[in-house]
């Protein structure tokens, strides 16, 4: 029995459903869908690190913020056109990630996590306190919408197609990276440290490359976020989103980009379906993290996969 995602009709149906969504669903659902699509970028980026080098990062929220702040400041303070700031945002995020984390990513896994907590807090504190540059706690307001010629993407429905295309490109690019020589090398490395360590110099460089890739995806996600929400604040990029992104990348199961995307959708909409819990909403959220890790340490999708049959599980 072939895995579901190898059937053409599955893809066709998914695509049709995604394209029809803004026309059929209420605006509010489209709005949530936009957040999900945007978040798939930093999460997939994190997947490069987690799945392919065995490194876990708790700084992805900060990197996401660096991308968002770069484009927000370039457009509001220097008057750049939003589209022109995509590349600078991505580059800025990469530069910051590599300069702060480049040395740390060579450390053993747990030490790297510790270092990323430091990076997360440092970035957040600087966003909060370097008021001359970032506006500090006032946040950045009135960020322009992305425009395509005369047409500007203001409403959730309009933005949806941009987010969908971006998430699609991110998905296929990620697939390419994984299939590339670098991807294979990184996977071999995370599978067998001993063998990989015999090519030590290249290992270090490959890990830094994985970090840069994950930062690039976070930066692009931040770019989208800033132009969708159009107001950003340092608290949007604290430890909380970092934890959320990490959980999204883990809940899907290691090394499965599709899994990560499904997990992103499930967890991002969680804030909505947990609404009836009112004051107790955060308790429910904490329980989901805790129980999820206790009972599905390899990701919630392992449950689905086990049902789908052994060959699918064996493939990865």
């Amino acid at each position: 029995m072939a895995a579901l995602h190898q059937r053409w009709w599955f893809w066709a149906a998914t695509l049709a459903a995604l394209l029809a969504l803004p026309a059929l669903a209420p605006q509010y659902v489209v709005h949530i869908a936009n957040f999900i699509l945007i978040y798939t970028l930093p999460v997939v980026g994190l997947g490069f690190l987690t799945g392919f080098t065995g490194r876990v990062s708790l700084a992805q929220g900060a990197l996401f913020g660096v991308g968002a702040y770069t484009t927000a400041l370039l457009t509001t303070k220097l008057g750049w056109a939003p589209v022109a700031t995509l590349v600078p945002s991505v580059l800025m995020t990469i530069v910051l990630a590599v300069s702060l984390g480049g040395a740390a990513v060579r450390l053993a896994g747990l030490y790297f996590v510790m270092a990323t907590i430091g990076i997360q807090q440092i970035v957040w504190l600087v966003l909060m306190n370097w008021i001359e540059l970032t506006n500090g706690p006032q946040g950045v307001r009135s960020i322009p919408a992305v425009g395509l010629g005369e047409y500007s993407l203001e409403t959730p429905q309009q933005f949806y197609f941009l987010a969908l295309v971006a998430a699609g490109i991110s998905y296929f690019l990620a697939k390419r990276v994984i299939g590339s020589r670098l991807g294979l090398f990184l996977r071999a490395l995370s599978d067998d440290q001993l063998a990989a360590s015999s090519v030590a110099v290249e290992v270090g460089r490959a890990k830094v490359t994985a970090l840069a890739l994950s930062a690039a995806w976070a930066g692009a996600g931040g770019f989208l976020y800033a132009h969708y929400v159009r107001f950003i604040h340092p608290d949007m990029f604290g430890l909380e989103p970092s934890v959320l992104f990490l959980v999204m990348s883990m809940f899907g199961g290691y090394r499965s980009i599709e899994g990560m995307i499904v997990a992103t959708a499930l967890l991002e909409s969680a804030t909505e379906y947990l609404r009836p819990f009112g004051e107790f909403r955060m308790i429910a959220y904490g329980m989901i993290l805790l129980l999820g890790m206790m009972f599905f340490p390899m990701g919630i999708l392992t449950l689905v996969r086990r049902r789908a049959g052994a060959p699918a599980a064996g493939k990865d």
Binding site: Y28, H31, V229, F231, G278, M282
Partner: peptide, 20 residues
Amino acid sequence: VDDASNPAQSVTAMQRLVND
């Protein structure tokens, strides 16, 4: 609508009111 005292969720919450 509860926005969880969070700026990002606040956008979603207002969107929901618009939608309703």
